Simulated assay, not measured.
Amino acid sequence: MTKEGPVKTAHTVFNVIEAILELEGARFTELVDHLGMAQSTLHDHLKTLESMGMLVRDGNEYRVGIRFLEYGEQTRQQRQLYEVGRPQVKELAEETGEHASLMIEENGDGVLLCIEKGDVAVNLGAYAGIRVPLTSNAPGKAILAHLNEERIDEIIVEHGLPQLTSKSITDRSELDNELMNIRERGYAIDSGELVEGVKAISAPIVSRGEIQGAVTIGGPVKRMSGERFDKILPDLLLKASNIIELNISHR
Rank of each mutant, 00 (worst) to 15 (best):
L144Q: 04
N137K: 02
L147T: 12
G160M: 03
H159F: 14
A138I: 00
I156N: 01
A138K: 03
V132Q: 11
V157N: 13
G140W: 10
I152W: 04
E150W: 02
R131T: 03
P133Q: 08
L134K: 00
A142E: 06
I155G: 02
I143C: 08
I152T: 09
I156M: 04
V157F: 11
I155W: 00
R131H: 07
T135R: 09
H159S: 09
L144W: 07
P133H: 05
R131Q: 12
P139L: 00
D153R: 12
H146D: 09
L147G: 14
A142P: 01
N148A: 07
R151V: 15
I152F: 08
N137L: 10
P139N: 00
V132R: 06
I156C: 02
S136N: 15
T135I: 04
L134P: 00
E154P: 05
V132E: 12
T135E: 07
A145K: 05
E150K: 13
I155N: 04
G160L: 03
I156A: 03
I143W: 10
A145G: 08
H146T: 06
E149C: 02
P139C: 00
I143H: 05
V157R: 14
I143S: 10
I155D: 05
P133D: 10
P133N: 03
I143A: 07
V132G: 01
D153W: 06
L147Q: 13
E158I: 09
H159V: 04
S136Y: 08
V157A: 13
A138P: 07
H159Y: 14
K141T: 06
I156W: 03
E149L: 12
H146N: 15
G160C: 01
D153Y: 09
A142G: 03
L134Y: 02
E149T: 11
I152D: 09
G140F: 07
A142D: 04
P139R: 00
S136F: 07
N148F: 06
I156T: 02
H159E: 14
E149R: 12
E149W: 03
D153M: 03
N137A: 12
I130P: 05
G160N: 02
I130W: 06
I152E: 12
L144Y: 09
H159K: 15
R131M: 09
E158S: 15
H146Y: 15
L147F: 14
E150F: 10
N148V: 06
R151D: 15
A138E: 02
H159I: 07
I152A: 11
E154H: 10
L134W: 05
K141F: 06
T135Y: 07
L134E: 02
G160W: 07
D153T: 12
K141R: 12
L134V: 01
G160S: 01
P133I: 08
E149P: 03
I143Q: 11
V157W: 11
R151E: 15
N148M: 03
N137F: 04
H146L: 07
P139Q: 01
P133L: 11
N137C: 15
H146V: 06
I155F: 01
E150I: 09
V132M: 12
N137I: 09
N148T: 02
I143E: 08
